[in-house]
């Protein structure tokens, strides 16, 4: 059931306006394969039938489902390891000194998907920084998709996901079995505050951040959106706070007030003033 050019154009625009995700020409196959399960689930006879209904109704869960279906939620624990090493070896030791008077750290995982990224941070802090146990550590984790946030809040992972990037020693220490799934222990879940947030929409008020991870999400956006998001990150990030991007992402040529700083095998960005 190939999609008509008109429907594709409508979907592409609707998705862009509500998530900034760019679904350009040539991605028809992607839209078709991601929407096919929804067509059946919502009992439409075809994608065309579905699109007709979307067009006829104001923005609703029906539209939201389409957008969520177009997000790519691929992630793993300690993904690309180097940023986590950098936080462990460079960032936190420095902040333990510089924040000694307030004893508070705000960390933001923007686009956290099903939670592996913020939980990796929480586990790392528990495991390696006992001196932070009496600090106020706020890990705020946001994503556009309610579907992935529901998984994240439960912190339950299938074997296929739990195998990804998580050292066995941490797995047995910080997880509990729930049937065949693995659930992050309550003490770690309690360290992370999951919230729904659209990076391309109006930003809710966020505390001033000590560390921001905005990894593997800018790649889905166009230059203008990336630039806008980086500008807003600059406003929530403290002057000495590092921003970590995905390994294929950069601020270069987008926002040159960010300067690249090398930390071990990772690169971070700091807003120069």
């Amino acid at each position: 059931m190939a999609i008509s050019a008109e429907s594709f154009a409508y979907l592409s625009k609707m998705i862009y306006e509500n998530s900034a995700i760019v679904v350009g020409a040539g991605k028809e196959y992607l839209v078709e394969s991601r929407l096919r399960p929804l067509v059946a689930q919502n009992k439409f006879s075809s994608i065309e039938d579905y699109v007709r209904q979307l067009k006829a109704t104001p923005f609703s869960t029906l539209h939201k489902e389409v957008i969520e279906a177009m997000t790519t939620n691929e992630t793993s624990f300690f993904r690309d390891i180097h940023p986590f090493e950098a936080i462990k070896e460079h960032v936190l030791p420095e902040m333990i000194k510089s924040r000694a008077s307030t004893r508070q750290l705000n960390i933001w995982s923007g686009a956290c998907s099903s939670g592996q990224e913020p939980y990796s941070l929480a586990i790392m802090i528990r495991e390696h920084f006992p001196m932070l146990s009496n600090w106020k550590i706020n890990i705020i984790a946001t994503d556009l998709s309610e579907d992935v946030l529901n998984i994240a809040r439960k912190g339950c992972y299938r074997p296929l996901d739990i195998n990804r990037g998580l050292p066995a020693a941490l797995m047995v220490k910080y997880f509990e079995k729930q049937g065949v799934e693995w659930q992050v222990k309550r003490e770690i879940r309690g360290m992370v505050d999951f919230r729904q947030m659209n990076l391309s929409g109006h930003w809710p008020s966020l505390p001033s951040m000590d560390i921001v991870l905005m990894r593997n999400v800018l790649i889905y956006f166009d230059q203008e959106t990336k630039r806008g998001i980086l500008g807003k990150i600059r406003r929530v990030l403290k002057p000495d706070g590092p921003l970590f991007l995905g390994s294929a992402e950069t601020t270069f040529n987008l926002d040159d007030s960010f300067k690249r700083v090398v930390m071990g095998k990772a690169a971070a960005y700091r807003a120069s003033t």
């Binding site: 074997p159 296929l160 195998n163 990804r164 990037g165 050292p167 797995m171």
Partner: peptide, 14 residues
């Protein structure tokens, strides 16, 4: 280390 079946190729490499 420890991998639980079923596993993906990525998990083995990681």
């Amino acid at each position: 280390e420890y991998i639980i079946k079923p596993f993906s190729k990525e998990a083995v490499v990681e």
